[in-house]
């Protein structure tokens, strides 16, 4: 039921967001049409951060309560977070090419996202390499906590590093037009709904796998 509602909501929001981006919002003066990438780029960043925050909370809860469900939530959220971060990095670099003439720039937020992406890839790998699933859950929870607490320090250090070297100006104009703000807000809601939908689906899937494993073990022992 929940996933039906979320599916309908995300589809409606997706169409609205696309319509706003391509037909309603005015073109930004300095960057031209490419600036419209921003309306999906920012929501992706927001929601990957939300996803990793959920990983952090669920990891703490797992180590504390030791219930499988928290672990399932953490790993599902990490996976969706990695997908979102990947898309954030791709859209960022496609944006950078026409504006600054390079595919990649060591802009603090982009660089932090790259480090974040690597940390959560490691999170997924640790789980995969662990010798038992219970161990994997414990190890992943530790990485989920440590990795998240590392983020502010990473951001701080990269910002300090970049301010010493000249870096590209990101966004001078600001969101002058109210239609721009509306589009951004709708897009943020779109991706939050999409995140919730994917998370619910992934959690249900993982729970199903868990149940199946238990049933199989039960069937074999009989």
């Amino acid at each position: 039921m929940l996933s039906r509602i979320l599916l309908a909501l995300s589809l409606v929001l997706l169409v609205t967001s696309l319509a706003l981006i391509f037909f309603v919002v005015p073109t930004e003066r300095t960057m031209g049409v490419v600036q419209r990438i921003f309306y999906w780029h920012v929501p992706l960043a927001w929601n990957s951060f939300l996803a990793f925050f959920v990983v952090f909370i669920a990891s703490v809860a797992y180590l504390w309560k030791r219930t499988k469900n928290w672990d399932i939530l953490a790993s599902a959220s990490a996976e969706v977070g990695v997908v979102f971060t990947t898309l954030f990095l791709i859209s960022g670099s496609i944006w950078a090419k026409p504006i600054w003439g390079v595919w990649w720039t060591w802009e603090p937020r982009l660089t932090t996202a790259l480090v974040l992406w690597l940390i959560y890839i490691a999170y997924l790998l640790v789980r995969a390499y662990a010798s038992s699933s219970e161990r994997g859950a414990r190890f992943a929870a530790v990485v989920g906590i440590v990795g998240f607490l590392d983020v502010p320090i990473v951001f701080l250090s990269i910002t300090l590093w970049r301010t010493q070297h000249p870096s590209a100006v990101i966004f001078t104009g600001g969101l002058a037009d109210p239609r721009m703000i509306l589009t951004l807000v709708v897009s943020i809601f779109t991706f939050t709904a999409l995140y919730a939908l994917l998370l619910v689906q992934r959690v249900a899937f993982k729970k199903g796998e868990e149940d199946l494993r238990r049933l199989k073990r039960l069937a074999e022992s009989e």
Partner: peptide, 28 residues
């Protein structure tokens, strides 16, 4: 100009999302 970059972003985001959902459905 630069319209290509804009479409590239929206196409890639769509495609990856779609692919991810497809993988989930197949798994289920």
């Amino acid at each position: 100009e630069n319209l290509g970059y804009l479409f590239a972003v929206y196409t890639i985001v769509w495609a990856v999302m779609f692919g991810y959902v497809l993988i989930l459905i197949r798994g289920q």
